[in-house]
Design a protein around this nucleic acid. Sequence first.
DNA 1: TTTTTAGTTGAACGATCGACTAAATTTACC
DNA 2: GGTAAATTTAGTCGATCGTTCAACTAAAAA
Lengths: 236, 236
Amino acid sequence: MKLAETTGGPEGAAAPKLDRRRAPDTAARILDAAESLFSIRGYHGVSLRDIATQAGVQVALTHYHFGSKEDLFGAVIDRRADAHVAGMADALVQARQVAGDQSTRRRAIIRAFITPIVDRSMRGGAGWKNYIRLMALVANMPQQEAFISPFRQHFDDVIAAYVEALRALHPEMDEGDVQWGFFFFQAMITHILAESGMLDRQSGGRFSSSELDAMVERMVDFVGAGFTGLGAGGLA
Amino acid sequence: MKLAETTGGPEGAAAPKLDRRRAPDTAARILDAAESLFSIRGYHGVSLRDIATQAGVQVALTHYHFGSKEDLFGAVIDRRADAHVAGMADALVQARQVAGDQSTRRRAIIRAFITPIVDRSMRGGAGWKNYIRLMALVANMPQQEAFISPFRQHFDDVIAAYVEALRALHPEMDEGDVQWGFFFFQAMITHILAESGMLDRQSGGRFSSSELDAMVERMVDFVGAGFTGLGAGGLA
DNA sequence: TTTTTAGTTGAACGATCGACTAAATTTACC
DNA sequence: GGTAAATTTAGTCGATCGTTCAACTAAAAA
């Protein structure tokens, strides 16, 4: 299986020269199509022929570039994982530098968790929107270890860092309560990002799915106050 | 398509006598197997042969009793929907009779939304546990209208009743804020009920998945306080 | 008893699935 | 320009998919 490596790391001892022949964007087009389809219909709801058709290539090319269907799914996840994890880690570092009372600093951490995700979904282009939705879709199928474990592998550490930041900020809270609160928070985000159409439907058109920015602020208000219900000091 | 009616309501004008020949519980066993498998692997991840095997019947029987695969999926949803909706409506009626300050009454409504769901998942037997998980799984696939619309058909009204109860309790709140808060709340529940194993994993074994009762109280604390962040009066 | 009918069986249907291969084509490098 | 590696094409493989059918069983109705 050959991954679509954009930078090309040398595998052997001496392989100094770039030896990419063609492959202008075929691999990327396959990944884009797979990302889009998987994020909507799930792994089993998509066939390699669906992906190949949407990418405008032959079915065999999916096997040539990425190996099996499972490998392709993993490649879709891996493509954007590092960039996303780095973005979240950066946001957390900045949030930890925010000064103010407990409530202000808590809200900064909360906002720093949503913002990188929502930003990429809204302003990162169609690819990122699909990727975020795929993340949510996978997170909601925890029974299937094979699908969720690659995700956990990427994101577990940075998520633990957020929990640790909240724990350090709230020594007065029970450690378990902090974890519960963050778990509730994470559950909210995961479900909401699974799609954007439900908002419009449920409220009879009052909320627009494109108004995710406004939703982020409501969410910070809600979660920030929610922590006070679990014993966090400071005002909501 | 013939539904598996346990009590047997007369369809025509005069059909007094039970006319079940054999088929003691075949249809129910098929529904049980489908419910269990769909709730774990999703619609496309399960074949009719998987279902028939787990039910211990022939594949053709799934088609005989329930028609197509989509029809079978719909029958699984329909089987328990009415009972569940009725239970939620009852819980809401009782919650609206709770006296006390705004915070107490708000918490009563919140608790009345989680309790019927968690109770059935924990103490309703394996069938209900699978059904609740299937609800969450479907709710997390909003892109696929064909799957979610039968669910909405059953549950939209009673959910709207909960929102209305909160709105009536909080005239000081912006109407949109009430909807946002309940939407956040619903998103939490949906994701959490998609499974019970994630709790154990994420916290390194600190939370047991069987401790859903404790979680419900944390959730009431968190959501009850969260509403104050959206402008609700009363203490958390 | 005879007829009718709901239920079940075992096997097949055409279609599509993921996976794979050999040949043809294109490109980079000498 | 020639050569070898990289890429693409077209097609096939066995397995499995949802669906269907005719034959069979047993209970209810006549």
